[in-house]
Design a protein around this nucleic acid. Structure first.
Lengths: 210, 210
DNA sequence: GTCTATATAGGGATAGAC
DNA sequence: GTCTATCCCTATATAGAC
């Protein structure tokens, strides 16, 4: 967007705009769009509040940039696998691996995206006006073929994908609740997720067998 | 809490405190705790802003009341079934029925609770300080027995419950996204959920078979 | 491009009449 | 118990110096 400067700034490294975006990402994910404060973002970026408005006109614009960035990290990952030429079984395994690894590294993302989608549905509709739909054609073909040969029960691609994603995303989105209700605080949660990594793919595939 | 008055108020029926709580429920669920405005709640309840502070001292207290109420609607329902003497298969079917029916009637609840849990984890810990954990003892016994007789694969009750709840809750929590990505806008979503009602229980049970 | 200082509004909370 | 009027702080946003 803007040429990086060679001069090193006072606080952290990197151009100011990027530092602001990174800081905004962190704060919005932690507090939510409405709970986030421009001051906190400025502090985290090591710049002044006014500079946020210089690069991004308003909090709303900044929020849009962060949300779009977040979506861009999640969706293509899964859509790429789902639309690929991999066999059905391989797709399931690949999605499980990709999602669990990614969300383990970005645990706040699921909760943030879901909250944002619920409290700001206009933004969703605006962003996905055209394009961005998952490539379900190939997947449906595979499901139909498996059903025709009685390898699997018939199922719509939408249902299939939602089942898979539900099992992967929900535990992260509900983590604060699970920590308390199941006692998975601290690294207990990591163990809990590792356990899932070991069986979830086969669990889903068995669920579709005749 | 407070004796109901026999006199009918100007706006809606019911005592003011209850109307306020109902209005707060509606607004908090729609906008989230930070996005909610006391003014909007007052309007929806047909009373003045000051009255909210008369009954509930602050927005924070009101938010706590609403959240507790929301949790109280969700948890006991499932915990009752899970801790009952029903057979394992019957429990799965019962939870599917209960949850899908309840969330269909209260579609905003899942998104609200998850958002609140993520952006206000202190409130969770405060509320579930003691008690409120799901009764997993009985369930684990059933799972162990099924595993011993090779009826099902061995599984921890925590994993079992999270799988079930994930498949039921996630679609509602992600509804705004699904509406756009899968094109389930309007009553398409209701059809989507009805389809799940027909197969989810067996899907989960098959996933656990050897 | 980055800062300090300030304008402006919005919203939670309270005082006090009825 | 319920209202009107108001306080006051906080947070976004802008003006203007450097």
């Amino acid at each position: 967007m803007v040429d990086k400067q060679e001069i090193v700034e006072g606080e952290a490294d990197g151009a100011a705009e990027e530092r602001i975006l990174a800081a905004a990402h962190a704060v919005f994910l932690k507090r939510g769009t409405y709970g986030a404060r421009m001051q906190e973002i400025a502090d985290e970026a090591g710049v002044n509040k006014a500079l946020l408005h210089y690069y991004f006109r308003s909090k709303e614009r900044l929020a849009e940039a962060v949300f779009q960035h977040a979506i861009g990290q999640i969706m293509p990952r899964v859509f790429g696998i789902v639309g690929s030429d991999l066999a059905l079984e391989a797709k399931v395994h690949a999605v499980v691996e990709a999602e669990l690894e990614f969300f383990s590294a970005h645990p706040y993302l699921p909760g943030y995206v879901l909250a944002e989608a619920n409290f700001n549905p206009e933004r969703i509709q605006k962003m996905f006006a055209r394009g961005g739909a998952p490539p379900l054609g190939k997947l449906q073909e595979q499901l139909d073929e498996a059903a025709a040969t009685s390898t699997m029960r018939p199922m719509r691609a939408q249902q299939f994908l939602v089942n898979l994603v539900s099992l992967l995303v929900f535990p992260f989105a509900a983590r604060p609740l699970l920590d308390v209700l199941l006692g998975t605080g601290g690294d207990g949660f990591r163990d809990f997720i590792e356990e899932r990594r070991g069986y979830l793919a086969e669990f889903v595939l068995r669920g579709m067998r005749p």
